[in-house]
Design a protein around this nucleic acid. Structure first.
Lengths: 257, 257
DNA sequence: CGATGATTTGAAGGAGTTCAAACTTAGTGG
DNA sequence: CCACTAAGTTTGAACTCCTTCAAATCATCG
């Protein structure tokens, strides 16, 4: 019975041994191992995953990893650097849907339409691993742990976006910006970086665009938080001096509606 | 080689024949077949899917399908009726994250944490099919088409939420509400109902909550649209008299930021 | 060092909220 | 079947948060 079912698999997967230039390109030796797609895989399974990972791509600051409308063939795991994803609306204005950092996956929103739904632009010189989705799908049949983890990642993406929806729908400017800072803080912490001092890789304008606020509002909020002793700012450098207070602001009194 | 790989499957799936009370409970005979999980499956595969679908559950108007924090064991396919999903924030206020209708899947956001991330409440007397997720995962190994379709559905959910994010972050009240109406319209059309005349199953307050506006704003917008001849309204009944104009409003001039 | 892009700050204006009150609908019990 | 009630909706007026517009200041990089 099982055999019959398995025979209906779409194509026969022929494992490909890692190529020479892949040696430095391995999930097994990657420092993001615990954050990225191979999370929770056995050593053997990680090697199977290694076998399908495509080339590493470097994207210079401001460069496009993919364009909206591009046919979807790969997911991308960020190895190094930061990205923003944005759409361009009917009237030509840019609308930022998210900021992504090392260990995060780009392209999940393209699976259903088989076309990328947004632009992915590097905020600094960055590097990604190309993950051919068709080959990943083939691996799912062999590595249930990988499939389960992949579902977790997609589900997490949904949850993340729900939180952003709540932020945009219900929070005042001050609350939004506090939530934004707290969010960055916790993501850096997960990656082993300081949760209180980091660089804002994006422009004020991009923060505002993402949070549904103007650049002036962001600037004013930075000044206010600075005056209140919540943060220290120097251009792109920011230090969160009172993380608990910022967290309280982020949770704090939403609009009543 | 393949056999070895397949042997690593987490558990041996023993197909269960449809139980007696399942006869009326089949994907194969369900009118939502083309919209829901079985989309694109062969007849044989649809029967396999039938084998794992749990009981049908009736939820009366106002009843909870699940609560936020509940352990996640099932996805739910809406068979009949409408739901809203909402969270309750720290200060006890309700924040609506979406409205769902027949053929749509509930619970995708719970996969990553294995706990439901929101409440699901029936907006009218409704009915859902329980889909035990663990058994669905077992089926994925046997029915690649099902897996692929499932990924599409998750990806679609991400895209949908991105659109809502854009709506909340960038649109004025008028534009949001127009987009909301146009969205309902196209979903009813897909389901074979009128795209221009339908019932609003949710309260004005719930619409406002979802769109990040007050109930008063929604009421004023309804009045304005009515005066402009774009719609006809009678309590919950609404008729879109000028769908193209509403579509234009929905696309129309976003805030500049 | 000069030019361009990015950020900050100020002042005025407006979209949408808040508060208040009237009105309508649906449901209940007499 | 009607009166009564509670819930939901509409409308008006005042206010507020954030935007818009404008101009000055600052950073970056050839």
């Amino acid at each position: 019975m099982q055999a019959v079912q398995f025979a209906t698999a779409p194509s026969v997967r022929i494992p490909v041994p890692p190529r020479a230039f892949d040696v430095q390109n391995r999930c097994s030796t990657c420092s993001l191992h615990q954050l990225c797609l191979p999370t929770g895989l056995s050593e053997a399974d990680t090697h199977l995953l290694d076998g399908i990972i495509g080339r590493r791509r470097r994207i210079p600051r401001g460069g496009n990893l993919y364009h909206m409308g591009d046919p979807f063939t790969n997911l991308y795991a960020i190895r190094l650097g930061h990205f923003k994803t944005h759409q361009v609306s009917s009237d030509g204005t840019e609308r930022i849907t998210g900021f992504q950092m090392a260990g995060e996956l780009l392209g999940l929103d393209a699976i259903s339409s088989e076309r990328h739904q947004c632009y992915a632009v590097a905020l600094e010189d960055s590097e990604v691993c190309e993950i051919p989705f068709a080959r990943l799908e083939e691996l799912f049949a062999d590595i249930p742990t990988l499939l389960r983890h992949f579902h977790r990642m997609m589900s997490q993406e949904i949850t993340r976006e729900q939180n952003t929806m709540l932020l945009l729908g219900n929070m005042r400017a001050e609350q939004r910006f506090a939530a934004f800072l707290v969010n960055l803080s916790s993501r850096y912490k997960t990656r082993g970086y300081s949760s209180t001092a980091f660089q804002l890789r994006m422009l004020r304008e991009e923060i505002g665009n993402y949070l549904g606020l103007t650049i002036e509002s962001i600037s004013r909020l930075l000044s206010r938080f600075k005056k209140q002793g919540l943060i220290r700012v120097n251009n792109r450098e920011i230090e969160l001096l009172d993380l608990p207070a910022l967290r309280a602001l982020a949770l704090g009194t939403p609009v009543t509606h």
